[in-house]
Amino acid sequence: MRTKPIGVVGLGIMGSAMSASLMASGRDVVGFDIDAARLGEHAGRGGLTAASATELAARCDVVVTSLTSSRALEAVLTGPDGLCVGDAPGLIIIETSTLSPDEKSQARHRADERGAVLLDCPMSGTGQQARSGDIVAYLSGDSSAAKAAATEILLMMCRAVYDVGTFGNGTRMKLIANLLVAVHNAAAAEALVLAKRSGMDLDGVLAAVGDGAGASRMLAVRGPLMISEDFSTATMRVSTFQKDIDLIAAFASDVGSPTPLFSATADLYRMAVEQGRDDEDTACVFGVLESLNPRP
Rank of each mutant, 00 (worst) to 15 (best):
A150H: 06
G86M: 11
I92W: 00
A146F: 03
S257N: 06
E55F: 05
S97Y: 02
M157C: 11
D134W: 03
T282P: 03
A53F: 00
A187Q: 11
T3N: 12
R114C: 13
R114P: 09
C284L: 04
M156T: 10
A24F: 04
G133M: 08
T68R: 10
A57G: 00
N178Q: 12
R131C: 09
N169G: 08
R270A: 15
T98K: 02
G204F: 08
M123T: 06
I245G: 08
A50M: 04
D278G: 08
S19Q: 06
R237C: 01
A130R: 06
A213W: 11
Y162L: 11
M1Q: 10
A148F: 05
V288I: 14
L202M: 11
F167Y: 13
G204A: 12
Y269N: 02
E274Y: 05
R197M: 07
G47L: 01
D246L: 11
V164N: 09
A58I: 11
E190D: 15
T166W: 07
G168V: 03
R131W: 06
L67R: 01
G40C: 05
N185M: 14
V273F: 07
P5E: 03
L179N: 14
G46W: 10
S69T: 15
T98P: 06
A249R: 13
L22S: 02
T282K: 06
G31R: 00
D246P: 01
E280V: 04
V193L: 14
H42L: 01
D203Y: 09
A264D: 11
N185V: 14
L91G: 03
V8A: 04
M173Y: 10
T282A: 04
T233C: 09
T171V: 10
G31I: 02
E113L: 12
E274S: 15
T78Y: 00
S21Y: 01
A107T: 05
D281A: 14
A24H: 09
L11E: 06
A189M: 07
D211I: 05
R114F: 04
T65A: 08
G204L: 13
Y269P: 02
L119Q: 05
P294N: 06
E290P: 03
L99R: 01
R110K: 13
D87T: 15
T98E: 02
A266D: 04
D254N: 14
A249G: 12
G199M: 13
M218C: 12
C158Q: 07
V285Y: 07
L73S: 10
L261I: 09
A75D: 15
C158W: 06
A24V: 02
S132N: 13
G133I: 07
R222T: 07
K243V: 03
S66F: 01
A187K: 09
L179Y: 13
A188V: 09
V255H: 09
L56W: 01
R71H: 15
T49V: 13
R217T: 11
R217I: 13
